[in-house]
Simulated assay, not measured.
Amino acid sequence: MTERLQPDVLLLADGPTGFTALRSLAAQCRVVQVFRKPDQPEASALRAFAKAQGILVAELQELNQLRKAIADLRPAAVVISSFDRIIPPQILALCRFVNVHYSLLPHYRGRANVNWAIINGETTAGISIHLVVPELDGGNLLFQQAIPIGSNDTVACLYNRLNAIQERELGGVVLRVVAGYQGTGQNTDQASYGCTRVPDDGEIDWRQPTDVIDRMIRGLTPPFPGAFTHLDAQRLIIANASPRLDAPSYIGRVPGRIVGRSPSEGWVDVLTGDGVLRVSSVLTANSERPCAAAFVIGSTRATLGLSRLDLLRRIVALEDRLASLEQLKCTQE
């Protein structure tokens, strides 16, 4: 019995799905090179695994490097998992390209789809593996699987589950593609598009309903940018929170006001537009890890969010700064 030859593949993997993509491919293919940004959270684990396997990891500065690598290495396929650049048609024509996309295509084409699925209140997320064509996320589907979004699921939870599916399936899908499998076409009449990036404007409006705020927090859980608010004009990321379903009704109180606090358990209760959100942990501007919310928010007299007084102070500070710059300009002239 002859041993099956492993096809050569090249991996483009910048983000949080790259490590499991590499492990899946390395189990069934010969990974000849990985292109990856050096400053990603999972970079050290991926690089250690690649080094142990004798796989070169390089930073892709420009797409001409990819063109040259394809010409030099002649891979049977280029696999993409978490890569944020559009590959032009002339490079796509050089080789088979397979992309891993964390949504149920043709829904949520684009980027940051797991984040937006939670924020928008979707009940399912999913993974699609497809051939790459010049149209954005428009190639034939090679594999697809849905997963439910639970009421307590964060974006990190969903990524862990989708990464596990990717690790189990990707290598086998690539083998089938190299053997000639073309997949099935997408129903373009049902196509929808997510935003092109993870939301970076996730400031919490405490006047919003509790479930809306809760979804934003779960959809932006660190290491993503995080849903944030302000405490005494200082930025504060909400790392973990949940709606308090048994909360009493507070009439005439200001959304964002702290109405309960437990130093022993670490949580604080915050008024929203229609209820109460229990905040368990927060991340301050000077910290790398979340800490108990009650350690940072020390009083039930506190109000989260920028108050009118905070805004007025900022306006006055900006006006003073502008006046100083104008005076400096006049002095130099």
Rank of each mutant, 00 (worst) to 15 (best):
V133M: 08
S128K: 01
L46N: 01
A93H: 12
E62L: 08
A45Y: 09
E59M: 10
L104I: 11
S82D: 08
L92W: 09
Q65W: 09
K51M: 10
E59P: 01
L66S: 04
Q61E: 14
A117P: 01
L46Q: 02
G126T: 02
E59S: 15
A48Y: 04
R96W: 11
A43N: 09
S103I: 06
R96K: 15
L92N: 05
A48I: 11
K68C: 09
N120F: 00
I119Q: 01
S128E: 05
R96F: 10
E59R: 12
Y102C: 01
A125W: 04
A76H: 07
A43H: 11
Q145S: 13
I147L: 12
I55N: 06
I70H: 03
T124S: 08
N99D: 14
V79G: 01
L141I: 15
L73S: 08
D137Q: 13
A77I: 10
R85S: 10
N115F: 03
V133N: 06
A76Y: 02
H107Y: 06
I118K: 00
D72G: 08
A76T: 04
P88T: 05
A45W: 10
L46D: 00
Q61P: 07
V98W: 00
H107T: 11
L142R: 04
N113Y: 04
A69K: 02
N140M: 09
W116T: 00
R47Q: 14
A52F: 07
F143M: 11
L73Q: 11
K51D: 15
V98T: 06
N99Q: 11
L131R: 12
N64T: 13
F49W: 11
F143N: 04
L94G: 03
A112E: 02
A146Y: 07
E62M: 10
V79H: 00
G126R: 02
T124Y: 05
L104C: 08
T124R: 07
A50F: 07
A58K: 13
L60V: 10
K51G: 14
R47P: 00
V114A: 03
N64K: 13
P41Q: 15
K51Y: 06
A43T: 15
